[in-house]
């Protein structure tokens, strides 16, 4: 299937899941898991920079519209998209992925993906909660939220990716 179409479908499904399911998770009021980051994480590796930024911004903006926090998620997700190339370089180290089109657990291996998720989620949550704290003068609380939310977000993201990862049999040969 067309790459663009796949990403559009992924975008819509993640927004619906985030708004209608994940946002209802309330563990003591401090845990706010965000799974819509999967969209930015799985964009193709060779995507042009401006498309990467606009995709991140668009995703954040749609989430903002639904949550009534115009600018907050958009800001955090744009920053995450901006840092993505650097994060990928950082977590890859000497590893080279010649034939890989988009990040996946199967092709990059679990340790790589764990580091990648950790960096992306931490960066996003940190920016987001700081923007929130900056607006609502509750910085100590924001830090506690980050500490509690990052593990939950990571767990959910990895779980979802594990569920929807193509199995080895269906693995497409790289073009």
């Amino acid at each position: 299937m067309n790459r663009v179409l796949i990403n559009i479908i992924r975008f819509v499904l993640l927004v619906v899941a985030q708004i209608l399911v994940i946002n209802h998770i309330r563990l003591g009021g401090y845990v706010h898991p965000y799974i819509y980051l999967i969209f930015v994480m799985l964009l193709p590796l060779n995507i042009p920079g401006w498309q990467l930024l606009l995709s991140g911004f668009g995703m954040g903006l749609v989430i903002d519209l639904f949550m009534g926090t115009l600018g907050m998620h958009a800001g955090a997700t744009t920053l995450m998209a901006f840092c993505r190339p650097a994060i990928i370089r950082l977590v890859s180290g000497n590893l080279k992925f010649e034939n890989v089109r988009e990040p996946s657990i199967n092709q990059m291996g679990f340790p790589w993906f764990l580091r990648y998720t950790l960096c992306m989620v931490t960066l996003h949550n940190f920016t987001l909660f700081m923007l929130e704290g900056f607006t609502f003068h509750l910085v100590g609380q924001a830090l506690l939220r980050i500490l509690l939310s990052v593990p939950v977000s990571m767990f959910l993201i990895l779980l979802i990716l594990y569920f929807f990862a193509p199995t080895k049999k269906r693995d497409r040969t790289p073009v």
């Binding site: 930024l53 606009l54 903002d64 600018g71 907050m72 800001g75 920053l79």
Partner: peptide
């Protein structure tokens, strides 16, 4: 984009 976000946020 970030300037746009901060503007929206403050508005």
């Amino acid at each position: 984009l970030e300037v746009l976000c901060i503007t929206l946020l403050t508005l």
